[in-house]
């Protein structure tokens, strides 16, 4: 299996940097950007498997960003992160196809397990699509 490529999106620079550092220490292939807009720009030029997305950001918020990601890169899996509990936002996110929804501060291991689960889902999904494409040829 090819290694998983992650993208972290959060406007809180400190949070973003510590998370990046911790993940890199575990040899995770991960990048970070500070806004929804730059996330979309990054995705347009870099293959990415799983996006970890903060819900509350200035400019494009998490939900808007999720909608755009799912529109432009439907195979990319998205895990939402939030600092406060809102059922409406959680449900909206999952109905728009977010893989899961985690509350900050979250456990680092838990986040990585989630990312791995999301990645596995993407691999399986892509396998099925390849299969269909071959059959249709």
């Amino acid at each position: 299996m090819t290694p998983m490529k992650l993208l972290l999106v959060d406007d809180e620079t400190d949070f973003l940097n510590t998370l990046l550092k911790r993940m890199q220490r575990r040899n995770v292939d991960v990048q970070g950007v500070g806004s929804g807009e730059s996330a979309l720009a990054w995705l347009a030029t870099h293959a990415t498997d799983v996006v970890i997305l903060d819900v509350r950001m200035p400019g494009m918020d998490g939900i808007e960003t999720l909608r755009e990601i799912k529109k432009k890169f439907p195979l990319t899996e998205v895990i939402m992160l939030t600092g406060h509990a809102s059922m409406e936002v959680a449900i909206e996110g999952m109905e728009m196809g977010a893989f899961d929804y985690l509350m900050k501060p979250m456990d680092m291991d838990e986040l990585l397990y989630k990312a791995e689960d999301a990645f596995k889902k993407k691999m399986i999904h892509e396998g099925k699509i390849r299969q269909m494409a071959e059959q249709l040829r």
Partner: peptide, 20 residues
């Protein structure tokens, strides 16, 4: 209230995923 909100949301989203 924070406890109630976060736990209710937590359990609902888990069950939502189970059904999915």
């Amino acid at each position: 209230m924070k406890f109630i909100r976060s736990r209710t949301m937590g359990v609902y989203t888990r069950v939502y995923q189970i059904v999915k």
